[in-house]
Write a protein that binds this DNA or RNA. Sequence first.
DNA 1: CGTAGGTTTGACTGATCTCAAGTTTGGTGG
DNA 2: CCACCAAACTTGAGATCAGTCAAACCTACG
Lengths: 254, 254
Amino acid sequence: MQLRDVSPADKAEPHRQPVSLRTVSDSLDRLYPLGDDDRAAIDALPFRTVDCPANHFLVREGQRPEYCAMLLSGYTCRHKLAANGLRQNVSFQIPGDVLDAQQLEFARADHNLQTITAATVALVMKQDVQQLVDRHPTIRHALWRGALIEASIFREWVLNVGRREGIARVAHVLCEFAVRRQAAKLGPPDRFELPMTQEQIADATGLTPVHVNRMMQALGALGVIERNKRQVTIVNWDRMREVADFDPAYLHIA
Amino acid sequence: MQLRDVSPADKAEPHRQPVSLRTVSDSLDRLYPLGDDDRAAIDALPFRTVDCPANHFLVREGQRPEYCAMLLSGYTCRHKLAANGLRQNVSFQIPGDVLDAQQLEFARADHNLQTITAATVALVMKQDVQQLVDRHPTIRHALWRGALIEASIFREWVLNVGRREGIARVAHVLCEFAVRRQAAKLGPPDRFELPMTQEQIADATGLTPVHVNRMMQALGALGVIERNKRQVTIVNWDRMREVADFDPAYLHIA
DNA sequence: CGTAGGTTTGACTGATCTCAAGTTTGGTGG
DNA sequence: CCACCAAACTTGAGATCAGTCAAACCTACG
């Protein structure tokens, strides 16, 4: 956590391949139902894709990004750094997520955006997104809704980090990941491969990696999850919800 | 904090007086410059005012508010409750703030909204606000910007609660209050009356009231602030910023 | 297979909590 | 204007969850 690599962005490979923004328009459509014209407009957006390795910085605090990034595959996180060198993750993103709708409004980034795994990111120029939402109020609405949901997730995280004990914090992060993953049709909620390291979970929960490790073992000992490498199986969802104090209402999933 | 009064909303007095939404339109104008027609449209909004005592619930988690509330005077906070009975404040509001633009999008509230002090609140029907923003894109833009700034504040609070030590957490809350207060033209940043109790600061910082008390004394002992009742004077802003790890960039004040 | 990153373990430390008792403050009614 | 009361603030002492430090152990991958 604290003093480890926060080194300059590696150079990622710009890169052309037959990909589309389908993942993104599906995701936006789930936020707010789009019309055929809206989806067509998204498909027609000019963009380039970038393949990034794990731990690659997409945006750094203080930068003025010209592009709006959208996650086609892989996982990313937003984080901030405290003066004492500690890192705090404030959210995770999954494929289909628009990574910085907020950059349409703010010139300077107020946090970092970094890949967790290798990832493919679509970059669209800010002005093109601006034009898109100006012409397509429905898309604007979907983005607006997505931003409000993310704000709700931030509120839940403040609670998680501020008022829950260690085991609940870790369990809550697992529950949220499982549910969002399912909602995005990426797989079942009761068995999945965790993309993040225990250190990244520590930075999301305000704990140390050592303690996260112990809490995950404790969840195993309680019989609510089983683990094999990064694979997690939630054996008992009822007890898991209870231990995690997890109520998915804050995710505002249709 | 934990098990104290979370009792049903007191009945607040609906109440007519010669007040206007001027405070709110000034505040929105600071977020994004409005035209005369925009301001006129806000002034023309049908609303009623409610005078609420301190600790009055304006919205409870799970409710479906019909109104969009705007704070004319006094102070409020958003908070969530954990299953263990602990409370977490996720933000404070100051006069002029639109309290729940997000209710335009979500039917159910995902958190509580409660007064800190006695407060006057303007209630506007959701549909009237909806119509307003549909007809006035500039006002929509200002609300959008306000929501994004609040999201940025949430991110900073996750960091504050997750990764800063007690004294910095408390100092950071004081800095944020001072700066927002000044930006809203409510007074100078170096001397102000705190509207919230130490218990409410505890719920904002993820600490106990006892520890908040000790941290405020520690800030005094360090010579960065002076206290007299609820009155706080920031004696040394440079050291205060340092102790608090406070950088106002996240507030995105023009 | 060698190596770096990730995970696990153990022993000790410490920031913050808990509990419990005062003390001060601000509002209210006589 | 003062006495009273509840809420807010302080203080002290002991308890604990989580942190720190340091070493091993995996395990993926070049």
